[in-house]
Nucleic acid binder design. Structure first.
Lengths: 252, 252
DNA sequence: CCTAGTGTTGCACGTTTCTGCGTACTAGCG
DNA sequence: CGCTAGTACGCAGAAACGTGCAACACTAGG
C-alpha cells in the first residue's frame, strides 16, 4: 500500500467509522503500528484529526460523541469478530454467513489475507470487495429481505458444488435446550445446507445471543465445532451451555 | 513497448486499479523505472494523475473509489435512473446491472412496485432489500472487486436458467465508433451474457458516458433497444450517436 | 548516403522520503 | 504505586526521487 493511499484510507475510516484504532488499522492493512502512528501524528498536526490514546478521533467533538457511543456498542461484536476472523487461515476456504456479526468478521479479516470466502450475503460480499487478496464467491438465489441473504433452490444448487474448510455461522439464539436457533424456517434450512458443505462449523455468538432462543432450530449445540463468544466461561449462562454440551470458545 | 502505448497503459491501470506502483509497473512490462517515473511526472504536470511517493493515484479519488463515485453527477444519474425505473413494469421481470447508475435505478423504483428483479450486484441486491414487494434474485459467481459484481462460469450457469423482459445495462462509455464499452474484458462478457437473457436491453447512459470510450466493447450501438440519457438530443455528441445508429431515449 | 536535429532512454549522483528499531517517557488501570 | 500498553523521538538504512548527462534511435533535409 502506497503511503499516500494509507493516509487517504485513514481519513476515510475516520470519517465513516468515527474513529481509528492504531493497532487494529495496522493489523487490518498489514502495516506497522509505527507508520500508522506517525501518519496520525502528522495528520493531527495538520488539524485533520484529533490524536487520542490508542488512535485518533475526528476533529469535531459532535462526531466524537456519536462515534463513542457507536464504538461501545460494537465492541462486543468486534471481539467475537476478531476471534472468528482468526479461524480463516491463509490459503483456506471459508463460508461466511449473513448478519451483522458475520459482516463484522468480514471487516476484521486482515487486509492482506489470501483466502477464498464464500458467502450468501450481498452485504458481506460488498464488504469483502475491500479485501484485494480475498477471492470472493457469491452464492446466488432468492433474496430473503429481512436478513439480506439469499436462499432457496438456486442457492442449494450452487452450494452443492463447493466445499470449504470452515463455516462461520450466525444465529439469533444459543440456548441450552433449544440449541442454535434463528427466526425463519427457510433461513434455518439454508444455514444447515451451508454447514453441510464445510469441514468445521463455528458459531458467532456475541453476548446478547447467549441464553436466547428463536423459533427455528438450525442445529443442536453439540453438532458444531465451536461457539465463539465474548461471555466469560464462568458466567452462569455460559456454564449452563457448557453443561448442555456446547463447545464454547472464549474470545480474547 | 511504444512510449505512447506505455502512457495509455498507465492511464488504463490508473483507471481500473485506482493506482499505479512505479516499480511494479516497470517490472510487469519490462520497462525501466525511470521511464515510468518520467511518464508519471509528465502526466501529473498535465493534470492526468496525482503523483505520490511510490507511484501515482487518480487526480480525484472519486474517479475510481466505488463509494466515492457516488455523488459524482448525482442529479444527472437520478434523471436517467428515474426514466429507466419506469421501464420496469409492474408484474414484469428485469435484470439490473451493477454500478452506481444501476444502484440509482434500484433506489428509484416505486416503493410499492410488484416485480421481479434479477441482479449480479451485491450492492444493488442490498438496496433492493428496502423494496418489500420486489422479488429479488441474486446471481452468484466470482466477485469482481472493482465494480462489485459477480461474473464467471457460475454466473453464466445461473443466468442460463432465467428469462427477463428487460435488461438495464450500465456501461462506462457510449461512443459513435467504439459502441458500448466498459473497462474490463470479463465484465464485458458478463454484460453480454445478461443481455442475451432478456427481451429488451436498455443502456443507462448519464451525460459523462456520452462520447466516452473504454477498452472493451460490450455491444454495438444498434444492438440494444434503447439508450437512456439526460443529454439533449440536439447536443452535438448526441447527434453523432444518432447518426451512428444509436437508439437514444431522452430522460425527462 | 550522409548529417544535423530531435526525442527517448539508461545511468550516475546527490537529495528527499519512508520505515523499522531502540530508548526513554507517559497515560490508563488495578 | 507499579504494571502494561501506548507513545514520542532520534537514528540509520533502504527505497524512491529529480536532475544532468551521454548514448542511442529515428527523422528530415541536403
Amino acid at each position: 500500500m502506497l503511503p499516500a493511499q494509507r493516509r487517504d484510507e485513514l481519513l476515510r475510516v475516520l470519517r465513516t467509522e468515527g474513529r481509528v484504532v492504531a493497532k487494529d488499522f495496522a493489523a487490518r492493512h498489514g502495516l506497522s503500528e509505527d507508520s500508522v502512528r506517525r501518519d496520525l501524528r502528522e495528520m493531527a498536526a495538520a488539524g485533520l484529526c484529533q490524536r487520542v490514546y490508542g488512535g485518533a478521533l475526528p476533529v469535531s467533538p459532535a462526531v466524537v460523541d456519536y462515534a463513542g457511543r457507536q464504538g461501545v456498542a460494537v465492541e462486543n461484536k468486534d471481539r467475537v469478530a476478531r476471534r472468528a476472523a482468526a479461524l480463516v487461515r491463509p490459503g483456506s476456504t471459508a463460508i461466511l454467513d449473513g448478519g451483522t456479526t458475520a459482516l463484522a468478521v468480514a471487516r476484521a479479516l486482515p487486509a492482506d489475507l489470501e483466502a477464498t470466502v464464500v458467502t450468501h450475503s450481498p452485504t458481506v460480499a460488498a464488504a469483502l470487495a475491500e479485501h484485494p487478496a480475498v477471492k470472493v464467491l457469491v452464492l446466488g438465489g432468492r433474496l430473503f429481505k429481512h436478513s439480506v441473504v439469499t436462499s432457496g433452490a438456486l442457492l442449494a444448487e450452487a452450494a452443492a458444488g463447493i466445499w470449504a474448510d470452515v463455516f462461520l455461522l450466525g444465529v439469533t439464539g444459543v440456548h441450552p435446550e433449544a440449541g442454535l436457533t434463528t427466526g425463519d424456517a427457510e433461513e434455518a434450512a439454508t444455514k444447515r445446507t451451508l454447514a453441510s458443505r464445510a469441514g468445521d462449523t463455528y458459531v458467532l455468538a456475541s453476548a446478547e445471543k447467549i441464553g436466547a432462543a428463536s423459533a427455528f432450530r438450525v442445529l443442536p449445540l453439540g453438532e458444531v465445532t465451536g461457539i465463539v463468544t465474548d461471555v466469560p466461561l464462568d458466567d452462569p449462562a455460559a456454564r449452563a451451555l457448557l453443561d448442555a454440551g456446547a463447545p464454547l470458545v472464549a474470545a480474547p
